[in-house]
Each structure stands twice: as structure tokens, then as C-alpha cells.
Amino acid sequence: MEEITAPGEDDEDEQHAYTKLITAISDYRRRHHRAGPDVLGPRPPGLDGEEWDHLTDAIDLYTRARIERRLEQMRARTTAQRTALLPPTSPLRQQPPPDPHPPGHRPPTR
């Protein structure tokens, strides 16, 4: 469970999503008698496998969203630092090209 990074205290929406995810995973682990470092354990057969798939997808989506948000923050900070450090006439001061994968963009599913 330590692999699922908790959000900062400043983002209520992200904190809410994290809480829901951790609660769902804990409930699944309790009902399926899972313990140890592997969050969900091996994929069970049948209908329980569908729940496992759903939780695995939720973990992946949450992690991807956290990474994208962190990258956005780093890009914004880099742009602000570049603007503050470079002279106004520097060609490096121009805005970077738009991101070809905007936030919320998901690649096609299987």
C-alpha cells in the first residue's frame, strides 16, 4: 500500500480520490484475506477477477493522474524560473510548444 502515494494536503479532490481508492483496496484485501506487500495479490478467477481488474485500473489511473499533475507543476515552475532568470530578449524565454498529450488524455484502451 506504500506504493500508492498520498496527495498533498492542499488538494481536496485528489485527497478524496485517494481516500476512496485506499478504502476500496482495503475492503478488497479484507474480503479476500490478502496480506503482504502485493497490494491485490494474484488475479482471482471468475467475478472476483472483474473486481480485481477494476481496482487495478483504478490504481493505474490514480498513479497516472498523480504523475501528470506533478509534471505539470514541474513544467510551470521551470517556465517561471526561466522567465525570471533570462533577459527579456532571449529566444529561450519563449513559451514551450503545447503538450501533444493534454491532461486527462488517455491512450486507447485494449
Rank of each mutant, 00 (worst) to 15 (best):
T23R: 14
A17N: 03
G46L: 05
A58R: 13
E72M: 14
I22C: 08
Y62H: 07
L92S: 08
T79R: 15
G46V: 03
L47N: 05
A84G: 15
W52N: 11
P44A: 02
G36C: 01
E50D: 13
P88I: 04
H54T: 04
R31H: 02
P88T: 04
H33Q: 10
L86F: 01
P45F: 04
I67N: 03
I22L: 09
L92Q: 06
Q81V: 05
Y28R: 08
Q94Y: 05
L71K: 12
R69H: 13
L86Q: 11
R66G: 15
D38N: 11
G46I: 01
R75K: 14
L61Y: 13
P42K: 10
R30Q: 10
T78A: 10
V39Q: 08
R69S: 06
T23V: 09
Q81D: 13
A58T: 04
A65K: 09
E50Q: 12
T63V: 09
A35Q: 11
T78P: 07
T56W: 11
H33R: 01
L61D: 15
R93H: 06
H54R: 15
A76I: 11
P91R: 08
T78F: 15
P42G: 15
T63Y: 04
L47G: 13
M74G: 10
L47V: 06
K20T: 07
V39Y: 08
Q15A: 07
I67H: 04
I59T: 05
Y62A: 04
A65N: 12
D60N: 05
S26T: 05
T19W: 08
A17K: 08
G49P: 02
R66D: 10
P45S: 10
M74K: 09
R93G: 14
R75F: 12
E14P: 03
A35K: 07
Q81I: 06
A24Q: 04
T63M: 02
A80L: 03
P91M: 08
P87K: 03
A80K: 08
L61R: 15
G41A: 07
H16V: 03
P88M: 00
P45T: 09
E68V: 13
D57G: 11
L85K: 00
P44W: 04
R69E: 13
W52L: 05
S90A: 13
I25C: 05
R70F: 01
R82A: 06
T89I: 00
H32M: 15
E51V: 14
R31I: 07
G41F: 01
P45W: 07
A17L: 12
T56S: 14
T23D: 13
D27T: 11
P87L: 06
T56K: 15
P42H: 11
L61F: 11
L21T: 04
L86T: 02
D27C: 07
R77V: 07
Q15V: 02
L92D: 05
R66S: 15
G46Y: 07
D53C: 08
P37W: 02
T78D: 12
R93S: 10
A24I: 10
P87D: 04
A24T: 00
W52Q: 01
L47A: 10
T89N: 03
T56D: 14
Q73N: 03
E68G: 00
T83F: 10
D27H: 05
L40N: 00
Y28G: 03
T56L: 09
A58Q: 14
G49V: 00
